[in-house]
Design a protein around this nucleic acid. Structure first.
Length: 565
RNA sequence: GCGCCUGUAGCUCAAUCGGAUAGAGCAACGGACUUCUAAUCCGUAGGUUACAGGUUCGAUUCCUGUCAGGCGCGCCA
C-alpha cells in the first residue's frame, strides 16, 4: 500500500517536472499523531525550491493531480506543506492474512545469490583464556546482525578469527608449563606477564594426562612450547565455544591465523606488495602524545598505506624479522577475498578504532575493494557492581567471565540488553542491577507480550474457538488499538530492510518494544474471546499475527519467545 | 598535540538517513485484577536536546568553534 501510493505520487511528479529535472525520492512516513493521517509526505516542501512555488500550493496541486489508489479516502495539506493521507479503515489489514500465510518467513527474503557474499567476522577473542564480559556486547551484536542480514537475503557466513600465533601464545604455553611444574610440587614465583587464571591449571592437568611431565621436561623451551601451545589453544577454544553456546551463538567457520603463516600466505603477500612497489625500508616518526623515553628510529619494512588514505605508513615486520599482526591480517582479509567474500564486515571493540584505516587501506591495495572491510566499532562496556566500577585485569586474573554473567542474568536478558542500544553508545552494565531487575527487564516486556498472545490462543481453544483459515473479517478491526497494531505489522519488513541496510540490529529491538507496547494496550482495551463469533475470529487473526511477528523479531535477536511465563 | 565515538527527563536509552507538540523503560506519586496472565495497563510530574554561532520554510539531526566523557596514536594483538 505504502509503495503503491509512493509510485502514484512519483508518476504524477514525472509529468509535472521537466524531463531533465531530478525527481526527488518520494518517501511516505508514519505521522506520530493520528490527526495527521495514516501516512504523510513531505515532497511538496522539498520541491518548493526547485519549482519556486509555495509548498502549500504544490501540495494542493499534487492532491488534485495524483491518481490516488482507491484505499486513500482523503488527502489534505497540513502544517508547512505536508500532505496527509487517510486510508480506508481496513485498507492495510490484509497484512494479517499475509503474516499467517508466510509465518516465520514474514519479513524475510529468500537468499539472493546475486548479492555479494558477506563474511561477518566477530568475537575473535584471543584463545588465551575464557571469554570475559568485554567480548559480550560484540558477540550479541554480531550474532544478531548475522541473523538480520540472513533474513534479508544476504548470503552470509559467520567467522571467528583465531589469533593463535604471536608472542601471546608463547606466554600462554609458558604459563601452562609453570603450572605443570607447580603441580609437580615445585614452588613457583609467577612472573607478571603470565596468565594467572585457574583455567591455566586445568589445562596443565589435562595436558599432563596425555603428555608425561618427564617427556616435556626433557624438551628445550622452544620444543616444549611447540607441544603445549597448540594444546592450550585448543583447550581455550573449546572453552570459548562453550561460552558462545551459552549465549546461543554458533559460528560457521573458525579461521586460524597460524595457517596463514604455515602456508606461506603472509610471505607471499609481502612479496606481492613488494612487487607492486608498495613496500620500502624506512623509519617512522616518533609516536605522538605519549612519552617514549627509549624511542630510537629504526629502519623497518613499511607498507605505503598512506597511498590508500592512511595517515602514516605501517610496519610489516618486527625487529626480529617475523611478520607483524597487521601483515597477517592483510593476508587474512585477502584470504576472505579469495574465498569469494567481496563484502567483509568486521566487528571490533572501540579500542581498535585506530586500526580501521590501515586495514581498509590494505584491502584496497590488495583486493581492490573500496571501503572494505566495513567495520563496526562497538563502544566499551563499563562493568559495574552496585554502581561501582568493577576493576578488571586479565593480567591479575580479576576479570568477570562472560559465563558468570550469562549464568546469573540469563542469555535472553544479556542479549536483549546489549541489542537495544546503538553500538556507538558506550554503556554501563551493572551486574547487581541486571540480576535485580531481571523481572523488570525490557526483554520480559516483549517476551510477556508473546506469552500473552499464546495464552489467549490457548484460552480460546479451550472454549472451542479456533481460528478458521480464510475467516477473520479484517473490516471488523477498526479500533485505534487494532489499527495501530496493523500499521506496525505492515512496517515490519521495512524496518528490517532499514536495519539491515544500516547494519543496525538495535532497530529490531526498539521496534519490538513498540509492538509489545501496542499489544499490551490492546489487551487491556479489548477482549478477544467474545460471544460475537465473527469478531472473535477477526481478533484471533490479529492475535496470531502479532504473536508471529513478535516471534520473528525475537528470532532475529536470538531471544527466545516463550509460550508461557 | 592529533584521530575516531559520544553528550537528549534524576538514571538507562529512543526519535523513521532535515519534518509537525522530542518519546519509552527504570526511579517518584495516584489509580486499575469476581472477566483471555497485573512480568500488564491508565494518569501525574519530569526538557534551554552540553554551550555558542551558522546553513533554510523547518535542526536533537548537517557545518564551524568551545566545553565534558570514552577509546586510540613505534616492530601488542
Amino acid at each position: 500500500m505504502k509503495q503503491q501510493i509512493e509510485t502514484a505520487i512519483a508518476r504524477y511528479l514525472s509529468t509535472l517536472l521537466d524531463a531533465g529535472a531530478a525527481v526527488p525520492e518520494v518517501v511516505l512516513t508514519r505521522p506520530k499523531q493520528k490527526e495527521h493521517g495514516d501516512y504523510a509526505c513531505n515532497i511538496a516542501m522539498q520541491l518548493a525550491r526547485p519549482l519556486k512555488q509555495a509548498p502549500a500550493a504544490i501540495a494542493r496541486q499534487l492532491i488534485d493531480g495524483v491518481a490516488w489508489p482507491q484505499a486513500v479516502t482523503r488527502a489534505e495539506v497540513a502544517g508547512p506543506g505536508f500532505i496527509n493521507l487517510f486510508l480506508r479503515q481496513s485498507a492495510e489489514a490484509g497484512v494479517l492474512h499475509t503474516v499467517l500465510q508466510q509465518g516465520a518467513e514474514y519479513g524475510r527474503l529468500p537468499t539472493d545469490t546475486a548479492k555479494p557474499k558477506v563474511n561477518l567476522e566477530f568475537v575473535s577473542a584471543n584463545p588465551t583464556g575464557p571469554m570475559h564480559v568485554g567480548h559480550c556486547r560484540g558477540a550479541c551484536v554480531g550474532d544478531a546482525l548475522a541473523n538480520l542480514l540472513l533474513a534479508r537475503g544476504f548470503p552470509l557466513q559467520r567467522e571467528y578469527y583465531i589469533n593463535d600465533a604471536g608472542a601471546q601464545i608463547g606466554v600462554l604455553a609458558e604459563s601452562v608449563w609453570l603450572r605443570m611444574r607447580e603441580l609437580q610440587g615445585e614452588t613457583i614465583d609467577f612472573p607478571d606477564g603470565c596468565y594467572p587464571g585457574d583455567y591455566v591449571v586445568e589445562i596443565a592437568r589435562a595436558i599432563l594426562r596425555e603428555h608425561p611431565f618427564a617427556t616435556l621436561a626433557a624438551l628445550d623451551d622452544a620444543g616444549r612450547r611447540a607441544v603445549i601451545g597448540p594444546l592450550a589453544v585448543a583447550a581455550n577454544m573449546a572453552m570459548i565455544r562453550d561460552d558462545l553456546a551459552a549465549l546461543h551463538i554458533q559460528f560457521d567457520h573458525y579461521f586460524s591465523e597460524t595457517t596463514l603463516h604455515q602456508s606461506g600466505a603472509v610471505e607471499r603477500l609481502i612479496a606481492k606488495l613488494q612487487q607492486d612497489g608498495l613496500v620500502y625500508r624506512g623509519t617512522l616518526p616518533p609516536p605522538k602524545g605519549k612519552e617514549v623515553a627509549d624511542y630510537r628510529p629504526v629502519e623497518q619494512l613499511l607498507f605505503r598505506t598512506t597511498r590508500f588514505g592512511d595517515s602514516v605508513d605501517r610496519s610489516l615486520q618486527k625487529q626480529d624479522g617475523t611478520p607483524t599482526y597487521f601483515a597477517a591480517d592483510i593476508a587474512y582479509h585477502h584470504d576472505k577475498f579469495q574465498r569469494g567474500f567481496t563484502r567483509q564486515i568486521d566487528i571490533w571493540g572501540a579500542d581498535h578504532g585506530g586500526y580501521v584505516s590501515r586495514v581498509q587501506a590494505a584491502v584496497a591495495a590488495v583486493c581492490g575493494l573500496k571501503k572494505q572491510p566495513e567495520v563496526l566499532l562497538v563502544q566499551m562496556v563499563n562493568l559495574m557492581r552496585d554502581g561501582q566500577p568493577v576493576k578488571m585485569s586479565k593480567r591479575a586474573g580479576t576479570f568477570v567471565t562472560l559465563r558468570e554473567v550469562v549464568d546469573e542474568v540469563g542469555a535472553d536478558a544479556v542479549r536483549f540488553n546489549f541489542l537495544t542500544r546503538r553500538v556507538e553508545s558506550q554503556l554501563d552494565f551493572d551486574l547487581e542491577a541486571a540480576k535485580k531487575q531481571s523481572e523488570e527487564n525490557p526483554v520480559y516486556y516483549v517476551q510477556y507480550a508473546h506469552a500473552r498472545c499464546a495464552a489467549i490462543v490457548r484460552k480460546a481453544a479451550e472454549e472451542g474457538r479456533v481460528l478458521q483459515p480464510a475467516t477473520g473479517d479484517t473490516a471488523l478491526l477498526t479500533s485505534d488499538e487494532e489499527r495501530k497494531l496493523i500499521a506496525l505489522l505492515t512496517e515490519y519488513p521495512d524496518m528490517l530492510e532499514k536495519a539491515a541496510a544500516r547494519l543496525e540490529p538495535y532497530r529490531v529491538a526498539t521496534w519490538l518494544m513498540a509492538l509489545a507496547a501496542a499489544w499490551h494496550r490492546f489487551y487491556h482495551k479489548q477482549r478477544v474471546v467474545v460471544e460475537d463469533a465473527a469478531l472473535c475470529q477477526a481478533r484471533l487473526l490479529l492475535v496470531h499475527a502479532v504473536r508471529q511477528v513478535l516471534a520473528n523479531g525475537l528470532a532475529i535477536l536470538g531471544v527466545t519467545a516463550p509460550e508461557r511465563m
